[in-house]
Design a binder for these strands. Structure first.
Lengths: 345, 345
DNA sequence: CGCACTCCCTAAACCGGTAAAGCCCACAAC
DNA sequence: GTTGTGGGCTTTACCGGTTTAGGGAGTGCG
């Protein structure tokens, strides 16, 4: 109400109004002992009346702890918007950050080198207290960067990719194996996989797991291809697979995200193939999108929100100095819906 | 290389190494005049050798300008992930921010009141230098909050909703009118609209525009309904419309985003109705999703990335003190694809 | 009464930069 | 030989908090 128009209330004003020193106000606001109850109340009242909130910039300058964590995402903008994954992940991260009254500094970058540079810059400039790293690739430069800087970091990726960094990860290999087993159990022999970006570590692992599972099950007709995760690439890959001679054509396709599976569904429709009659489709991640198609998409489903939350929680662990560790989150589970069935004939 | 292990390099270290004072280093790094070329070089060399970057916290404390802008988004997490809109918008914002070496502070909130509180807190705590506000509703509390605080802000929404704040907006009314005219021109008389959240200002405007257009064109069978933007709600609304008696059933449906249109497409398929034969569908926003379905979705398309970029540019304008203003961005244009055609019979 | 011991609180030194005022010196003009 | 003049750099006072050393008042005890 009486908030001064050119609002520049500082701790000094509050101190003056409460008739105490700056130090006392600081003590009160940081809930530290050594202040009489009455004084504390007086200080809070004064602050409320003036509409004062501690200047976090000043606070982090002197206390040298920063209530901001960084997240840089490195994917082309076109794909980002479409991938429900990231927003859900971010919302999971947010939930936990908010509990700690911490904020998220977000940046979209184009290359992993740019990202490494950005992280260094953020850290050196004391803009962030730590960071969440996603989309690991083999020999990822961020591992060395984070180690060299001594920056608290949680790496979202398999421990084999993240070096000495604390990691949070899902067991992609097991999930891929389960997907293949499921389709094989339905009777499929020619199973294909439309994978994500080949440069990404988890794509490599899924590819290897797919190969291994196919070999174990003796599936001669298994094949896979890498894409860039975009719907267009998914459509292209699907089209190329489904135009093969009927005897070579896969009867089931696993996708690395849901967007590509949706695109695959459209391609099947466009080619006059029935799903799941002529070809079964299995999506990955399982956002709501999978329930909005006809037929609905079976998927390897995954609590992405919880994944983000776990990453954030783990980061707080790292910041408060718990040793490095590996934090698996639940393996994606198969959620059968309308797009998978035994092959015809 | 020789970066000190417990990296705590400050401006003082750089000054010492270059044999100058702190002030000189500051001058050099802010590209201010008054330093000899040679000295400047020496300073940069020293900084490079020590791996120093200015501490932005300290900088903004003394210069009282903050290189961070805030963005709070107020929608349920489930919907956020799905809406390609936000990530595309954010990526547009990012592009411009990066040019100004500015960062984005992102937060997902649950209510508009919470958002108003958060903005106040960010601003009071000098965490942000300004903010982008989205999803305006009637009598939005953020208008008063931003005015009271004197915080530089750009409001993404129609000027009629954003009070005295500088606004960036698309002409939804015109776009809705164009959509209706197009469908009417194809021969449709029973046109329906599946709208977004009724509480949002632009939903209200689109609803009014739809009514007006239907009246002007003498479309007796026009009807519309509000949803929460989720695919499920879109499916439900579509189902309810398409189960009407054939004589009452709409022959064309306009959706307020693409997710609902995709869901609508699935519902039509599930009910055995041909698109566009039995019913035409028209999406809004036009992310890539519209090209991934079969048939592809006609849409009112919209450069969302550019929209975000314009919002960010405008915010910089506000921060540097240009007066309030209204910045329309291009009206969504009709992009006909496979989901719209003249009604059968 | 003196002394130790709490309990509350203040004063002052930071944190790492920026900004404005000031100092020194070379060179030019009168 | 003064007296500008201005380029090049240093000094110093902040910015708005946190933190620590320490001081005064009150209490218990010998």
């Amino acid at each position: 109400m009486t908030a001064s128009p050119s609002s520049r209330v500082t701790i000094k004003d509050v101190a003056a109004r409460a008739g105490v020193s700056k130090g006392a106000v600081s003590l009160a606001f940081n809930r530290k002992p050594g202040l009489a109850e009455a004084t504390r109340d007086r200080i809070f009242a004064a602050a409320r009346e003036l509409g004062w909130e501690p200047n976090l910039t000043a606070r982090s300058l002197s206390s040298s702890r920063v209530d901001v964590v960084g997240l840089a995402i490195c994917r082309p903008a076109r794909m980002l918007g479409l991938e429900p994954f990231y927003m859900e992940f971010v919302s999971g991260v947010e939930g936990v950050l908010t509990e700690h009254s911490c904020s998220l500094l977000l940046r979209l970058v184009h290359t992993v080198e740019e990202e490494a540079g950005l992280l260094e810059s953020w850290w050196r400039g004391r803009q962030i207290g730590g960071s969440i790293l996603v989309d690991f690739r083999a020999d990822d430069p961020r591992v060395a960067a984070a180690e060299r800087l001594g920056m608290p970091v949680v790496a979202v990726g398999h421990p084999s990719l993240t070096g000495s960094l604390t990691s949070v990860w899902t067991d992609d290999a097991t999930a891929v194996t389960e997907a293949v087993r499921y389709l094989a159990a339905l009777g499929h022999r020619r199973i294909a996989r439309v994978g994500g970006a080949a440069a990404l570590g988890h794509t490599v692992m899924r590819t290897a797991a797919f190969d291994a599972a196919a070999r174990t099950l003796g599936l001669a007709g298994a094949r896979q291809v890498a894409t860039d995760y975009s719907g267009e690439a998914g459509a292209r890959a699907t089209r190329s697979m489904l135009t093969a001679a009927p005897a070579d054509r896969p009867t089931a396709i696993v996708y690395d995200n849901d967007i590509m599976a949706v695109a695959g569904l459209a391609v099947a429709a466009e080619m006059g193939l029935a799903v799941p009659g002529d070809v079964s489709l299995l999506a990955w991640d399982d956002s709501q999108l999978c329930r909005l198609t006809h037929p609905t998409l079976s998927a390897m489903s995954h609590d992405v929100h919880g994944f983000g939350a776990e990453a954030a929680r783990t980061l707080f662990g790292v910041i408060t100095g718990s040793g490095p560790g590996s934090h698996p989150v639940p393996t994606p589970v198969l959620t059968p819906r309308g797009s998978t069935a035994p092959p015809r004939g």
